[in-house]
Design a protein around this nucleic acid. Structure first.
Lengths: 193, 193
DNA sequence: TATTGTATGCTAACACCGTTAGTTTTGTCA
DNA sequence: TGACAAAACTAACGGTGTTAGCATACAATA
């Protein structure tokens, strides 16, 4: 076999492409190897395990999400910033569902690299909330609430849990975001008084 | 092999036990068969596929969750009912994380039986909100918001996404629930005015 | 230019997974 | 007692991730 000098980056890039087009569920190392015109075992010259590759793709996904969010909130403040942030998050989950799933399935527990990737996820939210007069502690809590709402909404919609009622999902989404903004304003009052 | 006359229920019950003790991730039909002193292929006399078994366990999990929630809100109204509901949901996810994961991984899309199980999930929430003066349409939306918050919070905590900051997760949880109650009260005003 | 070393690829195999087909056993009921 | 259905079996297929050991091509060094 004429060797083609594959690099680790080539492999990760190919894996991302495959996941986006074929779905995370059906992804396998053997298919990835096929696509690269390589035997599956040869992949192990570049990656340590399937898990490691998975983690690497997670980094990529998180950085993409962060990029989209930061671009969305640039120059905006308060409720406008929050709405833009939520929209960017929502759109990412809808436009790139398979890559979004990779983030969800990342085990944040183990290593520190992922831990720092966690901060990448948090940063845009903290920035968007900066216009509100909140204590640092309030922001840490509210950041969790925001992520819960967004992630919960996306994954339930994705799973098909929102088909029981004939009301528009987009309306539910707007109500959810409005709820978070209400909570922000309420927290602001508490911090002031 | 002395036949033991296993039934479908025996198999489902054993699978639930295994998932609760060993984890959903490491569950396999072969281990289940071992535990029942049977060959894996023999399981197919009782179940059609791994997916079907998975779905069956999902029904069980949903009915357990519903039971816990209805018991929690009995005799309560308005914010007290919502808090009790949220607590029951939260406790279920924390006490029985592996069984909770089965609910999450249920593909709500396919069949109608699951569709009706979806209503089982919704019923306690609708009951808890009954004390608020809301339109039927508002309730359908708010039900989705509630589930998003709860599910999002639980799965992010489970995934370890809440370890970035040194603030108490229980406090974040209370703030999230308070946010939902705020949204309920706000929606009520809208409905009235 | 020749050699040596490393990175990249290969083959073969292992242990696991869900699943199917075909066969034997067992218990029950007529 | 004989027949039939349910419950178990064996053997196998194609799929997965992964490891060990071997070949080869390329790049740097003598």
């Amino acid at each position: 076999m004429a060797r083609q000098g594959l690099t680790r980056s080539d492999i990760i890039a190919a894996a991302i492409e495959m996941i986006e087009s074929e779905g995370l569920h059906s992804f396998s190392l053997r298919e990835l190897a096929d696509r690269l015109h390589i035997k599956a075992a040869s992949l192990y010259n570049h990656i340590k395990s399937s898990d490691e590759l998975h983690t690497e793709i997670g980094y990529y996904a998180i950085s993409e999400l962060k990029k989209a969010q930061l671009a969305a909130i640039a120059g905006k403040e308060r409720s406008e910033a929050i709405e833009a942030l939520a929209d960017a998050y929502y759109r990412f989950g809808k436009d790139r569902p398979e890559i979004y799933k990779v983030i969800l399935s990342l085990p944040m527990v183990k290593n520190d690299a992922i831990h720092s990737a966690g901060f990448d996820i948090v940063e845009p939210i903290m920035t968007a909330m900066a216009g509100y007069h909140l204590t640092r502690e309030q922001m840490m809590h509210l950041q969790r609430v925001f992520r819960s709402i967004m992630h919960g909404f996306l994954s339930q919609e994705e799973a098909g849990c929102f088909r029981q009622f004939p009301v528009d999902v987009a309306d539910s989404y707007r109500i959810a975001v409005r709820g978070f903004i209400l909570l922000l304003e309420n927290s602001e009052k508490e911090a002031r008084g």
